[in-house]
Amino acid sequence: MKVLVIIPAYNEEENIEAVIDNLISNYSEYDYVIINDGSKDKTSEICHGHGYNIVDLPVNLGLAGAFQTGLKYADLNGYDYAVQLDADGQHNPKYISDMLKKIQENNDDIVIASRFETEKKPWSMRMLGSRLISGAIKLTTGKHLTDPTSGMRMYNRKMIHEFAANINYGPEPDTVSFLIKQGAKVESVQVTMDERTAGESYLNLSRSMIYMVRMIISIVLINNFRKR
C-alpha cells in the first residue's frame, strides 16, 4: 500500500526545511512530493540543496492547481492514498496514521483531519465562516462536517483519479460537498493543528470574504446543477 504526502509550497523558505526533515526522519514509511508553486523566494533552492523530492511549477498556479499537480503525480505513480500537508507546519504528520486507519476501516473516499470532531468549535470570527460552510453543507447534503475548511484531507485511489482529471475539483469544501451529494463517503478524524511557525497567512479579511461568498454560492446553488 502506497501513501503519498503532497506538500504545496508557495514562498515557504522559512518553514519548508523543518516540515520535510520531520517527514523524512520520523515518517519515512510515506512517500512525499513538494509542489513548488512558482515561489519567488528560496524555497526551490533549499529543496534542491537538500535533495528533497520536488516538482517545480514554472508559473504560479494557485493552491488548487498546485495540489492537482500532486494528485496527477500520485495518479501516474499508482498511489493508493494521497494526503495534503501544508508547508507552513500547521499540519502534524503524526495524524496521517489515524486518517489512514479510518479510510481503510470504512472504505471511505475522503477523510478530513478535523479540529472539532470531538473538541468544541470556538465562537470566533474565523469560526463563523466555518460554521456557515458547515451549515450550507448540512443543508444541501444532510451530512455534518465538523471542520470543512481544514486543508488536511486524505483521498483514496478513486478520488485521486477523479480530482486529477477534472475541472472544478479544487481541494475546497464545495468540491467535498458536491462529492457527498454524489454519493462519496466522507469522514473526519480529530486532530490538533499548530499555529503557523513563520511567514504570513494567505487569507486576510477581504480574501476571506470573497472565499466565503464563493463557497456559499457554490455549495448552495451551483452544486445542485453540476454533473459528475
Binding site: 464545495d174 464563493r214 454560492i217 457554490s218 446553488l221 451551483i222 454533473k227
Partner: peptide, 19 residues
Amino acid sequence: IKKIRSSKVQIEYSIFWIL
C-alpha cells in the same frame, strides 16, 4: 450553470455572473 455542467467554465469565473 449550463457551462459549468459541461465543464467549460471554472466556478470562480461564474460567481461574478451569478452575483
